[in-house]
Simulated assay, not measured.
Amino acid sequence: MSSVAVIGDIDTVTGFKIGGVKKGFIVEKDEDAKNALNELIETDISIIIITEKIADNIREHINKKIGSDVLPMIIEIPDKFGSSDRDVDPMGELIKRVIGVEMVK
């Protein structure tokens, strides 16, 4: 595994493609996002970048597919409208899953 892919709205995916990311899935429906995630999990992708709003909409599916696995790493980013208000810090959860230590403030 050594590649990066992005799942998001057209602006996010286009920006990452301009930056050199080869695999990108423009999604508008939750079902499309789930299908894109499933496809990427079956390939050699090690990092999946997904917008926060899409990830929030398919959170249960992400948790079911990824579980406590380290790879592929799911990195959630804000879309062009900014960050989502959240009770859980996704980067903190990622760090906890990868290194097994909870980061506290």
Score class of each variant (00 low, 15 high):
Ser83Asp: 13
Ile95Phe: 04
Ile58Cys: 02
Met103Arg: 09
Ile99His: 00
Pro78Glu: 00
Val21Phe: 00
Lys53Gly: 11
Gly67Lys: 11
Ile7Lys: 04
Asp9Met: 06
Pro90Gln: 00
Ala5Asp: 01
Lys65Tyr: 07
Val27Ser: 08
Ile45Tyr: 06
Ser2Cys: 11
Asp79Asn: 08
Ile74His: 04
Asp56Trp: 04
Asn35Ala: 13
Ile99Glu: 00
Asp89Ile: 03
His61Arg: 11
Phe16Glu: 00
Ile58Pro: 10
Thr51His: 06
Asp11Cys: 04
Arg97Lys: 08
Ala36Gln: 01
Lys80Arg: 15
Leu71Gly: 08
Ile54Trp: 01
Glu52Tyr: 08
Lys22His: 05
Thr14Val: 05
Glu52Leu: 02
Asp30Ala: 14
Gly67Ile: 01
Ile75Leu: 12
Val70Leu: 10
Lys23Pro: 10
Asn38Thr: 12
Asp89Tyr: 04
Asn57Ser: 12
Asp69Glu: 14
Gly24Pro: 06
Thr43Gly: 10
Val88Trp: 06
Glu60Pro: 08
Ile99Met: 11
Ser68Ile: 11
Thr14Ser: 12
Ala5Cys: 04
Asp11Glu: 15
Asp69Met: 11
Ser84Trp: 11
Ile41Ser: 12
Leu71Val: 13
Ser83Lys: 08
Gly92Trp: 01
Gly100His: 09
Ser84Cys: 08
Ser2Pro: 07
Gly100Arg: 09
Ser84Thr: 13
Ile45Ala: 00
Phe25Ser: 05
Glu102Gln: 09
Leu37Val: 04
Lys105Val: 07
Ile10Lys: 15
Lys64Arg: 14
Glu39Asp: 15
Ile49Ala: 04
Lys22Phe: 03
Glu42Val: 13
Val70Asp: 03
Lys105Gln: 12
Gly19Met: 01
Lys23Trp: 11
Arg97Met: 05
Asp56Met: 10
Leu40Trp: 04
Asp30Gln: 13
Val98His: 03
Val104Pro: 12
Ser2Leu: 15
Asn57Cys: 09
Val27Arg: 10
Gly82Thr: 03
Ala5Glu: 00
Pro78Leu: 10
Asp79Val: 01
Asp79Arg: 04
Ser3Met: 13
Lys34Phe: 02
Asp87His: 11
Ile18Phe: 03
Ile48Trp: 00
Thr51Pro: 05
Ile74Glu: 00
Glu76Thr: 05
Ile50Thr: 03
Asp44Met: 02
Lys22Glu: 10
Lys17Gln: 13
Val88Lys: 13
Met73Tyr: 05
Arg86Glu: 06
Asn35His: 08
Gly15Cys: 06
Gly24Ala: 03
Ala55Arg: 03
Leu94Ser: 09
Ser68Tyr: 09
Asp44Ala: 03
Asn35Val: 07
Thr43Phe: 09
Ile95Ala: 08
Lys96Thr: 07
Ser3Gln: 14
Ile41Ala: 09
Ser83Phe: 14
Leu40Pro: 07
Val6Glu: 02
Gly100Pro: 00
Lys29Val: 15
Lys23Thr: 15
Ile95Gly: 01
Ile50Gly: 00
Ser46Gly: 14
Val104Gln: 10
Lys53Ala: 11
Asp56Glu: 15
Thr43His: 11
Lys65Arg: 07
Leu37Ser: 04
Val21Thr: 06
Ser83Leu: 12
Val21Asn: 01
Val88Ala: 09
Gly15Phe: 07
Lys22Trp: 01
Phe16Met: 12
Leu37Ile: 05
Ser68Gln: 14
Ile66Glu: 06
Thr43Leu: 11
Ile10Pro: 15
Ala33Glu: 05
Glu93Met: 09
Ala5Gln: 01
Lys80Gly: 15
Lys105Gly: 14
Asp85Phe: 13
